[in-house]
């Protein structure tokens, strides 16, 4: 009977302990990455290559999505604001939503699916084809040579992409608000300028995107490195990167927003 109860609880607790174990491994992995980051920073060309793959190649999807999200925000916002005679505040609405929230969050979700999955797949396949082992046997540390540059490439790209998302979104809002709906361009921009606080709004948005960048990059490189060296293993790891990153982004967003904007 006692045996049965022990078995029952260990079965119930297993997913939890597994998750905790993985979190522990990921934390130790982060420490290992930080310890071996000298190469990535001194030989910055290695990191630049990763910024190209993770960041520059994500520009198109980020820019187009940003533009459309900004346009939709303007259309929806105008419809509501005009009822209260506040249509001239459309610029504030669009810009605030974007720099505080949508730029970092939607940008990060897109970044996780576009770049995070690619990073996981690349590292996972390098492991499956013994390229990482080969590196190790050549006395080259794969964490320093492969993982750390990818990590920093992601961390550096994320805030820049989030900023680009917001900028394109604001431009989309301008096209709809000023060009299509005929709002006054002067009041659209000047109200936006006076209502948005650099530290409170813009900087907090940047801080958010830095946190998201660290989270996505860590999850992506960790899942790749931890993937079983089989076709199934790599595909599972790629999926986990996207799912885990998305959940972590949204969870972190709640936390960060609670800290940043309480009482405002």
């Amino acid at each position: 009977m006692v045996n049965w109860i022990v078995k029952f609880f260990s079965r119930v607790g297993e997913p939890f302990t597994n998750a905790l174990l993985k979190l522990g491994f990921a934390s130790r992995f982060l420490i290992a990455i930080l310890r071996h980051s000298t190469t990535a920073l001194v030989r910055f060309r290695l990191t630049l290559r990763e910024i190209w793959f993770a960041g520059v190649l994500s520009v198109l999807i980020i820019a187009v999505s940003g533009l459309f999200v900004g346009m939709v925000l303007a259309l929806q916002g105008y419809d509501t604001l005009v009822r209260f005679g506040a249509s001239s505040s459309l610029g504030i609405l669009v810009a605030l939503s974007l720099v505080r929230e949508l730029g970092p969050v939607v940008g990060a979700l897109l970044f996780a699916s576009r770049a995070g999955s690619a990073i996981t797949a690349e590292i996972g396949l390098m492991k499956a084809t013994e390229q990482l082992s080969a590196m190790e046997m050549m006395a080259v540390n794969p964490i320093a040579r492969v993982v750390a540059p990818k990590f920093w490439g992601g961390v550096i790209s994320m805030p820049l992409l989030a900023a680009m998302f917001s900028a394109m979104g604001i431009f989309g809002g301008y096209i709809i608000g000023v060009q299509l709906l005929g709002l006054d361009a002067g009041s659209f921009w000047s109200q936006m300028q006076s209502a948005i606080d650099f530290q409170q709004d813009v900087l907090n948005g940047v801080i958010k995107s830095v946190f998201f960048g660290v989270a996505i990059s860590l999850i992506a490189v960790f899942e790749g490195f931890d993937a079983p060296p089989t076709a199934e293993g790599v595909s599972g790891a790629t999926t986990r990167t996207v799912v885990t990153s998305s959940l972590v982004i949204l969870g972190l967003d709640v936390l960060l927003t609670a800290f940043m904007f309480r009482g405002v």
């Binding site: 084809t129 013994e130 390229q131 082992s133 080969a134 190790e136 046997m137 006395a139």
Partner: peptide, 19 residues
């Protein structure tokens, strides 16, 4: 260990070239 590995060369089963 990394210093010791400088004395080793290894040929992997399928080459493990960097693609």
């Amino acid at each position: 260990l990394y210093a010791m590995r400088r004395k080793l060369g290894m040929l992997f089963q399928f080459g493990a070239l960097f693609t």
